[in-house]
């Protein structure tokens, strides 16, 4: 059974970024190694495989450009395929006893002796896609960089705004996801010294935002705070 990234995250193809992020976090919680919900139904290895697939899906769908490209390929039916769950391999030896189901046009009328099963048979095409099969292999997309390149002059408010827009999110989306007030996010992006929160809170907010935008949290905090310090000196 193969499925696309939207089905994997259980979101609609028209889901907002906030919905995708929420679905991803819930699924990641469910399949994390310390989740008691996964215990006894999935092996640690299978749970890890599920997590990997979820991360692939999130990596693609949480970025507006990657998502657009993925949608385009889905529409064209050119996304290659992999099994959705841990693969069930057919026994290599002939089956014993033979499972012979109700004859189908393609099936032989009788199976006098155990016959090896065909190695693959395409699944019926999901109605959503024009052509089966499709799947996603890890090499189908460029690997996720651990952190996006940081600006050489350090992180600025404008850079934070660009990072948010690269994720296809509005300030309200980010506020909903991170629980950071929208006015604070706006203050960070506009470098509004009068409305920025106290340094200790700002540090936490920046860390949270950096995680959300897949940025290097330490470098973001250090360079942004340094910039704010210099702006304050200039203002004084």
């Amino acid at each position: 059974m193969s499925e696309n990234y939207y089905e994997l995250l259980k979101v609609s193809p028209r889901a907002t970024v906030a919905e995708i992020v929420t679905a991803y976090h819930a699924a990641r919680n469910a399949f994390s190694p310390d989740s008691i919900a996964v215990y006894s139904l999935f092996s640690a290895e299978d749970a890890q495989t599920e997590l990997k697939k979820l991360e692939e899906a999130y990596f693609t769908l949480s970025n507006i450009d990657r998502r657009r490209e993925y949608d385009r390929r889905l529409q064209q039916g050119t996304v290659p395929s992999a099994p959705a769950s841990a693969p069930a391999t057919a026994p290599s030896a002939p089956l014993a006893p033979v499972v012979r189901l109700v004859p189908t046009p393609a099936a032989p009328a009788a199976a006098p002796s155990p016959q090896p099963l065909p190695s693959t048979q395409p699944f019926p095409a999901p109605a959503f896609f024009p052509q089966p099969p499709y799947s996603v292999t890890p090499t189908a997309f460029p690997a996720a960089p651990s952190t996006p390149p940081m600006p050489p002059e350090g992180v600025t408010g404008a850079w934070m705004a660009q990072a948010r827009e690269r994720q296809g999110m509005t300030i309200e989306d980010v506020a909903q996801l991170t629980k950071i007030p929208a006015r604070t996010i706006a203050a960070i992006e506009t470098e509004n010294l009068s409305t920025l929160p106290a340094r200790v809170y700002l540090q936490g907010f920046l860390r949270n935002l950096a995680r959300q935008y897949h940025m290097d949290a330490t470098a973001t905090i250090q360079t942004y705070l340094a910039r704010i310090d210099s702006l304050k000196k200039g203002a004084a």
Binding site: P83, F123, P124
Partner: peptide, 14 residues
């Protein structure tokens, strides 16, 4: 889910 996959392989109708 594996069962469904195997069943589809053996007999799409089933």
């Amino acid at each position: 889910r594996d069962l469904l996959q195997e069943m589809r392989r053996l007999s799409p109708d089933h």
